[in-house]
Each structure stands twice: as structure tokens, then as C-alpha cells.
Write a protein that binds this DNA or RNA. Sequence first.
DNA 1: AAAGTAATTAGGTAATTGCTTAATTAATGG
DNA 2: CCATTAATTAAGCAATTACCTAATTACTTT
Lengths: 121, 121
Amino acid sequence: MEDETFDDISESSSVGAAQRVFHALSSAPRRKILAYLSASGLTAGEIADRFSMSKPAVSQHLSILETAGLIRREKQGQFVHYSLIENNLVNTLNGFVQEVCPVGRPIKKESQARARRKELP
Amino acid sequence: MEDETFDDISESSSVGAAQRVFHALSSAPRRKILAYLSASGLTAGEIADRFSMSKPAVSQHLSILETAGLIRREKQGQFVHYSLIENNLVNTLNGFVQEVCPVGRPIKKESQARARRKELP
DNA sequence: AAAGTAATTAGGTAATTGCTTAATTAATGG
DNA sequence: CCATTAATTAAGCAATTACCTAATTACTTT
């Protein structure tokens, strides 16, 4: 397996996939980066420009997001282009919600949101 | 300010509701507690028994989960009974997913899960 | 090949976290 | 009312985090 929402019942090192995702999401700057990337891919520099912290600090956040499988890194010449990987985020959060909640609640809200937009099959 | 999924564009103290929820979820023991509580309410002691760490440490985790609005605390005699508050968890995660992802992806997965179970309206 | 730009790595530090044990508060039963 | 059990608060500490500046790597342009 490779799921890990329930994490190590067996009390181990806490470096599962879910752990990496949830840790990545626990930081406001990192969530902000994801939000920026949801609009469009950006270079490391463009992302850093949107923050008041130093470039290396932002680079570190990007690396954590990448390790969590939430964003992808593509080198283009001297630039590094980052973009969102939606699946891992959605699957991890969704899997967790499914496990913790007796199912049913989330659907209503999502159905509403869905109704307001175009349908993808 | 009180929503904060997008967090402080304005660069502030990062103590929003979303911040509290995501921080709460970033810990494996805390996610484990939520999973236990998804099955049934439990007293602080019953929860602590399921971990190898000390009772005060577990108590602290419970307090963080409560502050995040993910669980509720009810004193019953000399016991303290904890139980899950599903709404806050689901709404926060759902809201975040809606914001970061172009909508549509989560629904399919949840619909599948829903089909496998009984329908709540 | 030298200079400039983009990005990361390295090294250091103050603040925070995640636990511990000891002390305290609160409810129950003899 | 004293002892016991449940739970939290308090105090302290090792390990980690989140940032910084300086140095390095890698690509581009002249």
C-alpha cells in the first residue's frame, strides 16, 4: 500500500505520504503558494516576488511542496517552472475525509459547487 | 478577518481558522485521534490508552484539536468525553480543495464512495 | 571566457514543537 | 474527610522549524 491516512498505528517514523501532504499544508505560505499555482504555473522567482521573505526561504517551501507531491518542478533553461499536481492533494484530503467522517456530508457541499459550474464527467 | 483559506495576503499573524485546522491535522497522533473518534466518542483516558505517550501529551493534542474546532469536549462527572465535530473538518478541507483545484475532480471519487454506501439526503 | 541572472545549497540562529515528570484541580467512594 | 481516580496545568528540555545571509551551481549573453 501507499495510502497512510491512518498513519502508523505501528508507531514508526511518520514519513508517510499523508504525513508529508498534511505537513506541507500546515504552513500558511505554502498554502498561499498552492493558491497562486492554482491560477497558473509560475517560476520560482515569480513566486518569491509575491512574498516578503527571502528567495531561499521560498525555495525551501517549494521543495517541501514538491516532496509532498503537490507541485511539480520543470527546469526550463535557467528558470525553474512550478505547477500544481492536483491529484495528490485532492486524493489525500478526500481519502482522509472519507476515513474520518461517516461519508455523505461532503457530497452535498461539493454538489452545490458543482451545480454552479460546468460539469466535467 | 476570519476565513483565511487564502491566508494573509496582508502578511499577519497566521492564527486564522484554516491555519488552526491545518496545523491540527499536520500531526500523525492527532489524525489518529480523529480516526478513533470517528468510530465513537471516547474519554480522554480511553484515548490516551491507545497511545504510548504520556497522558498530558495526549491531553495537549486534544486541546489543539478542540481549539481547531475539530472535536468537542464534554465533562461527565470526573470523566471528559470527546467526540468528533465533522462539519468543521469537512468544510475547511472542502473549501480549500475548491479554492486550489479547478473543481470537478473530487466529486467523482466521492460519488463512488457514496454509491457503495447508504444515501443520506 | 567573463559578467549577469536564476535558483539552490550551506551554515547559522532564534523561536517553536513535542514530549517528559511533577504538581494541581476536580469528582467519587469508603 | 481522606484516599483514589481522571484530567489538566506547569515547568523544563532536546529536537525541529523557519527564517536569514553568504556561497555555489547552472544557464545565458556579450
